[in-house]
Design a protein around this nucleic acid. Sequence first.
DNA 1: TCCGTCAACATTAACGTTAACGTTAATTTC
DNA 2: GAAATTAACGTTAACGTTAATGTTGACGGA
Lengths: 329, 329
Amino acid sequence: MSRVTLRDIAERASVSINTVSRALNDKSGVSEETRKRIVEIADELGYMQNLVAKGLVTQSTNVIGVVVSDNVNPYFSEVIQGISLVTQARGLTQLLVNTWYSRSAEREAVNLLVQHRVDGLILFPIDWSQVDDYLRYRIPMVCVGAIPPCSEEKPMDMVAPDDFGGTTEAVEYLVRSGRKRIAYCGPGEESISGVHRLHGYERAMKAAGLEPIFIRMEAITFDAYRFGLTSSDFKDIDAVFAFNDMIAIGLLRAFGERGIAVPEDIALVGYDDIQLARYLTPALTTVRIPKEELGREAASLLIQRMGGDFSQPSVTRLLPTELIVRETT
Amino acid sequence: MSRVTLRDIAERASVSINTVSRALNDKSGVSEETRKRIVEIADELGYMQNLVAKGLVTQSTNVIGVVVSDNVNPYFSEVIQGISLVTQARGLTQLLVNTWYSRSAEREAVNLLVQHRVDGLILFPIDWSQVDDYLRYRIPMVCVGAIPPCSEEKPMDMVAPDDFGGTTEAVEYLVRSGRKRIAYCGPGEESISGVHRLHGYERAMKAAGLEPIFIRMEAITFDAYRFGLTSSDFKDIDAVFAFNDMIAIGLLRAFGERGIAVPEDIALVGYDDIQLARYLTPALTTVRIPKEELGREAASLLIQRMGGDFSQPSVTRLLPTELIVRETT
DNA sequence: TCCGTCAACATTAACGTTAACGTTAATTTC
DNA sequence: GAAATTAACGTTAACGTTAATGTTGACGGA
C-alpha cells in the first residue's frame, strides 16, 4: 500500500525529484513543456502529496487544533461551525478533540495537539487553572468563551460573548416585566463562563433592589429536567434565568409536567440562543450569543497570530449579546 | 520558536539520539539509570515528541479523518461523539471536515485527508456517486449512515441504522392507531439515507393498503418550519412521518401556529431521536437511531481494518432502530 | 571573442524521528 | 578459560518533502 512519491514520478520522467516538486508546486525553474509532462505522469500514477513530509520540512502543518468540552453541545458545535467556515476557506484543517469537561483530558488534548505540531490552537477552556501552563508551549492560541477575572490578565488572545452585558439586559428585562423573585439556575463560580453570568446577574439584581437567588445545577444539559421535576427550589420563584438554553429547555419541560405555567407562573430566560430555541412551544426567550461570529473571530485572530506577529500585544474581543424576547417571558 | 529535539537531549546527556529515542519510548536497550537521566533532561528542556516526524518514518499518523456534512446537525455530532469515545481511548485523534452537503467539498475533503496520510477514514457519504472513486486511495474506510441499493454493492465496510425496519415499524404503528392519510416529509431519492426511509415507508403503506403521500422538503433542518407554515399539503393529512427530528420539530411548531393540533389532528413521527426530542412539549414520538453506537461501531470497524486485514471481506453492520412512542402520536 | 546572464535543470542538505544493524564490554556457560 | 550470550549503547539509513546551492548550455552585448 505504499504510495507514489515524487521519486517515482522523477524516475518516470527522467528528471530530478526537485524538478518534480517545483513543477507540481507551480514554482519557477521548470519549462512549461516538462511541467506538463510531469503533471501528466503524476495524474497517471495517482500521486497524492504527502503533507506529513511537507510538514516536517516546512515546519508547518496547516492544521489547527480545536479543544472543546463536548461537540454535541449546540453551543460548541455552532462555534466550531464558525471556525470551520474561516479555516476551510484558508486551506486549514481542524484536529478536533473533546475533553468531556475533564481538566486532565484538556491537558492531554493540548499536549497531543502540540505534539502533532498544529500551527495554532483554539481552546474552549474549562477553567483558568491550567491555561497559564499552555503558554509555555509558545504556540499561537486563542481562548474562546470566557475572559478571566480582571485580577489575572492572560497574555493571550481571547474571544468571548459579553456575558456581563447579556445577563444585565436579561435581568433588567425581567424586572421591568414585574418579576421580583428571579432565580439564577446553573453552575457556580467553578464554571468559566458561568462566573461572569452569575456576577452579572447578582449585580443586576442588587441594582434593582432584589435579592439574588442561586439555584445550583450540576449538569449544564437537558438533564436539568430531572432536577426541575423534583426540586422544591422553584416554589417561591416567579422567574428563572438559566445558564444556557439546554438547562432552560429541561426546566421548561419539567415545569410543564408539574403544572407550572410558563410564562404565567414562572418566566424563563435561556442563554446561547441555540437554533432550536425559536421552534419550541412556547418559544424560548434567550440571550443570543453570536456563536458563528465567535468562531469566525477566533479563527481570524488565530490566523493573524499564526501570521507571525507573535510579540504583538494580545487582544480580547468581546462580542455583544442580544436579548431575544419570545414566548417564555 | 524552534522546539527541543531528541538531538538536544542527546547532546545534553552525552548519548546518541537513538538512545534517547529508546529511553523515551520505553524500549529495551537502555539502563534504568540513563533512562531516568534522559527523562529528567527531557522534562527540564520541555521536550515534546514530534508526531509529524514520527509519522513520516513510521508511516502511520495515529490520526483518522472524519468527513461529515454538518457537525451542527445533532445526528452527526452524536455519532461523532461515539467515534470520539472509541478513538480517543485508543490514542487516535480525529481530523474533522465539514462538507456542508456539497459533493465537491466531500471530494476535496477526502483528498485532503489522504494527503494528510490519515490512518483511516470515516465517511458520512452524501451520495454514492463518488464513493467508488475513493476506493482507489486504498485507505481503510468506513461509510456511516447509509447502505447502497442492492444493485450496487460496495467493497467497503459500512455501518447504518436499519432504516427499512425503522420506517416500517413507525408506519405500522401509525396505521394501527387508525391513521389513514400518512404523509412522508423529507428529501427524496437524492438523499442517501432518505432513499431507504422513503422506500420503507412506501412499502409499509402499500402493505397496509394505503396510498403513499410524498411531501418533498428541500432542507432537512428546522427550516421545515417555514414550509410547514405556508404549505397546503397538510390539508387532508392525519399523520406525518418526517425524515428526521429537526424537520418534525419545525413542522410541530408550524402546526402549532396554524392551529393544527398534534397529535389530535395530525400525528407526528420523527427520526433519529436526538437528545432534545423527549424534552419537547409535546414530546416527540420518533424512531431512535443508536447514534453513539453507530459511531462506536464505525470506529471499531475502522480500527480493525487499520489493523491490517485489508483483504478481509467487507462487512456491513445494520444497527436496529427502535420506535419511541411519546406524545405526538 | 569573451564574459556575464539566465533559464532549466541537478545535487545536496536539511526536517526529527525510528529501526535495522554494529560494536563493545561484561557476564554466563561448559 | 575460551566461546557464546547479552545488556547497553552507537551508527547509519531511511521516511518524502522543500530549499539552498551547483551546474550546465544557450544567448546577448561590448
